[in-house]
Design a protein around this nucleic acid. Structure first.
Length: 257
DNA sequence: ATGCAGATAATCT
DNA sequence: GATTATCTGCATG
């Protein structure tokens, strides 16, 4: 292996043609490439289909927003949430079934400079959450401290930023980039093309599972999977219901607890 | 280390 | 009008 070069075969579409909770643990250790940046997945969450998983976006059926999840497997489902974040998923099961695996965290294994630049600045066609508009552009955040390597893709929205995944990438075929991967030219994959590489699958003994993060329903379904001890796995955060504005919440003056 | 509040807009009831 | 598959900065221990 040459320096700065990463090579690996791409996963076939059939890999994703299974229930998301079966695909999810097997994605650990795999590498998602998009343009110049590649991330080795260390934490994922499975989301089921209509009527079976209350926490899934597809629970109440197909809508314009979740339509990609009902399409063929191996495509990216990228959604916008909290008014500022994008999160990326890989679609599972054949066309007609709506399920996917949320990519929660990973280790940047290629294009680290590009990934850091994206995480540091507000550029790149996105607004970064809670960011300060200022950035020196030399890899330091507005606070003056550089983002640690392990934090570059530690969390679903951070991972999406590091990989440069935006609204326009919703529906992108993550199998189509396989031809570039086959050329063993990771850094030669053009922006807009993606692929999931074999990487080094996590050993079964190192895989842990537990409840999913940040959801208000189906709290006990243990469909979050991660590589035990990996520093890039995000800290678990339970869902916290938020009362946005006490005054606006109750017009009648009946204040709640 | 842990916890809270605020940001901010698409989507759904 | 309420919720949201989140992140960050600031506060506290």
């Amino acid at each position: 292996m040459g320096s700065g070069e990463l090579s690996s075969a791409a996963l076939p579409r059939g890999f994703f043609d299974r229930p998301s909770h079966e695909v999810a643990p097997e994605l650990l250790g795999r590498v998602l490439v998009h343009g110049p940046v590649a991330v080795r997945l260390t934490e994922v969450e499975a989301y089921g289909g209509p009527g079976e998983d209350p926490a899934a976006h597809t629970y109440r059926g197909k809508t314009p927003r979740n339509a990609v999840m009902f399409g063929p497997p191996g495509h990216l489902y990228v959604y916008f949430t909290y008014g500022m974040h994008f999160c990326a998923n890989l679609v599972c099961l054949p066309e007609g079934f709506g399920s996917a695996v949320l990519l929660r965290a990973g280790e940047v294994v290629a294009g680290i400079d590009e990934a850091r630049a994206r995480r540091t600045s507000t550029g790149n066609g996105r607004t970064s959450a809670g960011n300060s508009p200022t950035s020196t552009g030399n890899g330091t955040a507005a606070s003056g401290r550089a983002i640690p390597d392990r934090d570059l893709a530690r969390g679903p929205a951070r991972l999406a930023v590091a990989l440069g995944l935006l609204r326009e990438h919703n529906g992108l075929d993550a199998i189509a980039g396989a031809s570039f991967a086959a050329d063993r030219r990771l850094t030669g994959i053009p922006h807009g093309a993606a692929a999931v590489l074999e990487g080094r699958p996590a050993e079964a003994a190192s895989i842990r599972s537990g409840p999913r993060t940040g959801i208000s329903t189906a709290k006990d379904t243990p469909w979050r999977f991660w590589i035990d001890g990996d520093p890039t796995v995000s800290p678990y955060r339970a869902h916290v219901p938020r009362r946005r504005n006490a005054a606006a919440t109750s017009v009648g003056g009946a204040s709640r607890s």
